[in-house]
Design a protein around this nucleic acid. Structure first.
Length: 783
RNA sequence: GCCGUGGUGGCGGAACUGGUAGACGCGCUGGACUUAAAAUCCAGUGAUAGCAAUAUCGUGGGAGUUCGAUUCUCCCCCGCGGCACCA
């Protein structure tokens, strides 16, 4: 029976105060049509909805107005729910989840502990945006300008202890207790996702293959080995200086030998003040300061090279230091030109007097690899480094571990306790959930409000029983949304986040619909968490979302983004009250392909509105007596419609499905009477799109069951196969007319038909060189 | 800059694995109904020429492959989205 299940999932919304917008409606209508259709096809469909209700907006609103986030969120949820019901969105409401409820976040905390106990959650210092005046951490978007959003003071980068999830452990495939677990990279091959989204994930992970090379750093007294990562070990002979990022430890290590320490320190101080934004702005102009008094040694030729501190070298990537090869790297080239450093060409093929050459070529000026290709040289140099123990093959990733700490109130508390005696301890599972206190002060004091809630903060140590304190950071809301699709399957369970049986009954998600804005973060984190749960045997699921589709953004009428300030936001409520829910559903589906970006056009709603009205009018023509047979064209068209609409739904091509429904209705409109039988079929295929209209008209037929309890109609494929085809008649590739023939007619038959045809006779009077005949499509005479 | 994605009538968009370009809808034009208007119904609607049959051109621009290209290949232009010094 398992093969008949269907898990249809929507990305659950953040319940914002402004209610559903037309973009939500688009995605949700699509999944609603799909799941209604699958149900009619006999699938055991699960189609849940819930609320991603933790997060900054509710907290900021609380700071502004004093209304508690749980109130704001509940009001919004009520509003969302009633809007969804009005739109005829049919959800399994008994499965509803809310991430900010303690029954839910209890398991978010449990998940944290699972990672913690297995060494996948850890604490380390990390840079945060810090405002000294407010003494608080700021989110990136609050620090975008480099100045604090609240007080206008300058934002600095500060190191704070932060919690991380070790997502890096799951990039590649792994074997764990005999179980093979596919990683975040190779797992992408197994899933039916938009290519763009897969590529976005791949790029985000950013795998680079290369080598680590050990450079000796020396001040003539001490030696220190420093690893650098490079993707171009083949260019090692062209390395003419080394650059380290401003936070690199060797500055501290060699501070007594650095002759220009004050100049260096000044540079480091200034670069610390820079926010990410400023660094991007400054990116074109590369700056740096030489560390006078120390140098590095190229391990291949023992050449001494200068060392620079330069903020174009990132601290978080590789070892925070690079071997610079100006001849073959654009950034190093710019830096070398600016500071007049040596540029040695080691790969021929470019013109290094003008620019860095990053292409392929033959190695020159490179002793042991001269004459080799780039590929060969890479291999040989790595081999050489490994033999001499001065380096090795190595892989680096752009993806860092996931920073999940938030110095915020409205999130799931991190279940950790600090005891002066026993140290850092996980909250015992039996003590979960760690409840978020209600009695907090929202006035902006600067730090996490939890810190000032005594009832929350003070706790007894689970080991020694003495007074201890709780962690007062909360978790990133992406943690909450990384596992909700499991909870839907067993939403009330108090023993476990979801029973394994129930998970295997419905997972993986068969169709996941949501915005492309989640292409990277949410989808990557959710895949990671699914793999963690697989590793520790809570599920057998490696990839949670088998098929993913995005709904494209809906733009304002003028083609720009809908914006509140421009007043161009369309409120679905207004559309529903003016045109009805079915019209809105149909219109949004008829606009164009689901995944495409498309402009809103209120006038166009009239088209689908007329279609619905016409449907109601035509219902008057229905005759119960089937002895009055439908004409052949109606029988053919209704069969075509059942086929086409079904196939189009499967491919999420709702726009063309609706167009076929319109063609069908237009044909019925031309007839005196419509048979009961045909009309029922028509209503059935219309039902997923326009549930209200079709159900009404269905019940008018004195049917006792709801239309949604009836099976999707069958079509007669033999009938469709017999339909005459219109063949295009071409001469030298130019279409001169059409001819109706039986399907699969022989070439010779067609030619003799054409010779008798008044219209085509004249073209065939002379000789022709060749005939190209494609059955049921074209016949082309080459003269 | 890199990666991705798209460019088809006045507009939203259709077109199966290369085979009738413009389905369906909006809008527009003419007609019917009406004292009139709205609504509704009927007819027409890519451009140019023609009374018409029909002909020529036409899917961002340019080349190519093919009997045949919106579809495949190469080059270029423009829009949109993501990433942004990742060594």
């Amino acid at each position: 029976m398992n093969n008949k299940k269907f898990y249809c999932l929507d990305m659950f919304p953040y319940p914002s105060g402004s209610g559903l917008h037309v973009g939500h409606v688009e995605g949700y209508t699509a999944s609603d049509i799909f799941s209604r259709y699958k149900r009619m096809k006999g699938f055991n469909v699960i189609h849940p909805m819930g609320w991603d209700s933790f997060g900054l907006p509710a907290e900021n609103y609380a700071i502004k107005t004093g209304v508690h986030p749980s109130k704001t969120v509940d009001t919004a949820i009520n509003n969302f729910t009633s809007q969804m019901k009005k739109l005829g969105l049919e959800y399994d409401w008994e499965r509803e989840v809310k991430t900010s409820s303690s029954e839910y976040y209890r398991w978010t905390q449990w998940l944290f502990l699972l990672l913690y106990k297995n060494g996948l959650a850890y604490k380390k210092k990390a840079k945060v945006n810090w405002c000294e005046k407010c003494s608080t951490v700021l989110a990136n978007e609050q620090a975008e300008t480099g100045f604090c959003e609240r007080c206008g003071d300058q934002v600095v980068q500060k190191d704070l202890e932060q919690w991380f999830f070790k997502i890096s452990d799951f990039i590649e495939d792994q074997e764990f207790e005999g179980k093979k677990i596919k990683g975040l990279l190779s797992g992408l091959d197994d899933i039916d996702w938009p290519q763009t989204t897969k590529i976005a994930q791949k790029n985000w992970i950013g795998k680079s293959v290369g080598a680590e090379v050990i450079f000796a750093i020396s001040d003539d007294k001490d030696n220190y080995n420093l690893n650098v990562f490079t993707t171009r070990p083949d260019t090692l002979y062209g390395c003419t200086y080394m650059a380290i990022n401003p936070e690199h430890e060797i500055v501290e290590k060699f501070k007594n030998s650095i002759k220009n320490l004050s100049e260096v320190s000044k540079y480091i101080e200034e670069s610390k003040k820079k926010t990410d934004m400023e660094k991007i702005i400054d990116a074109k102009d590369k700056t740096g300061v030489e560390l006078e008094g120390i140098s590095a040694i190229n391990p291949l030729n023992n050449k001494r090279i200068k060392i620079f501190v330069a903020d174009y070298v990132l601290s978080g990537y590789g070892s925070g230091a690079i071997m610079a090869v100006p001849a073959h790297d654009e950034r190093d080239y710019a830096f070398a030109k600016k500071y007049n450093l040596e540029i040695i060409e080691v790969i021929s093929g470019g013109d290094i007097s003008k620019e860095a050459y990053t292409g392929d070529g033959t190695l020159i000026n490179s002793e042991i690899v001269n004459g080799l290709s780039v590929e060969e040289a890479k291999k040989k140099i790595i081999k050489y480094l490994e033999d001499k123990k001065i380096g090795q093959a190595s892989v680096n990733y752009r993806l860092r571990d996931w920073l999940i700490s938030r110095q915020r109130y409205w999130g799931a508390p991190i279940p950790i306790i600090y005891c002066d005696k026993c140290g850092e301890l996980p909250v015992p599972e039996k003590d979960l959930p760690v409840l978020l206190p209600e009695d907090v002060d929202f006035l902006p004091t600067g730090e996490s409000p939890l810190k000032y809630s005594k009832s929350f903060h003070e706790v007894n140590c689970p080991l020694c029983g003495k007074k201890a304190r709780r962690e007062n950071d909360t978790m990133d809301t992406f943690v909450c949304s990384s596992w909700y699709y499991f909870r839907y399957l067993d939403p009330k369970n108090e023993q476990i986040f979801a029973e394994k049986d129930k998970i295997s009954q419905f997972m993986p998600v068969d169709l996941y619909i949501g915005g492309a804005d989640h292409s990277v973060m949410h989808l990557l984190y959710a895949r990671f968490i699914a793999k963690v749960l697989q590793r520790y045997d809570y599920t057998d699921i490696n990839e949670p979302f088998k098929k993913l589709r995005h709904q494209g953004m809906i733009l304002a009428e003028d083609g720009s983004k809908m914006s509140k300030s421009k007043g161009s936001v369309v409120n679905p409520n207004d559309v529903v009250s003016e045109y009805g829910a079915d019209a809105l559903r149909l219109y949004e589906m008829f606009m164009g392909p689901l995944e495409e970006v498309k402009p809103w056009n209120t006038k166009n709603i009239l088209g689908v509105k007329r279609f619905l009205e016409k449907t109601e009018i035509l219902s008057e023509k229905v005759v119960e007596d089937d002895s009055k047979k439908d004409s052949q064209d109606v029988i053919l068209e209704i069969n075509k419609t059942i086929k086409k609409v079904g196939e189009d739904i499967e491919e999420l091509k709702f726009n063309t499905a609706i167009s076929q429904l319109m063609i069908m209705l237009n044909l019925l409109g031309k007839k005196e009477k419509i048979s009961f039988n045909t009309w029922k079929k028509f209503l059935l295929v219309l039902a997923p799109f326009a549930p209200f209209t079709s159900e009404n008209l269905w019940l008018k037929l004195n049917e006792k069951k709801s239309i949604f309890e009836v099976s999707w109609p069958e079509y007669d494929s033999s009938l469709l196969a017999e339909e005459k085809v219109s063949l295009a008649v071409q001469f030298n590739g130019k279409t001169r007319g059409l001819i109706d023939v039986e399907p699969n007619t022989e070439e010779s038959v067609i030619i003799s038909m054409l010779k008798d045809d008044e219209k085509f006779k004249k073209y065939l009077s002379g000789a022709y060189k060749k005939v190209i005949y494609v059955k049921n499509r074209i016949i082309n005479f080459i003269v």
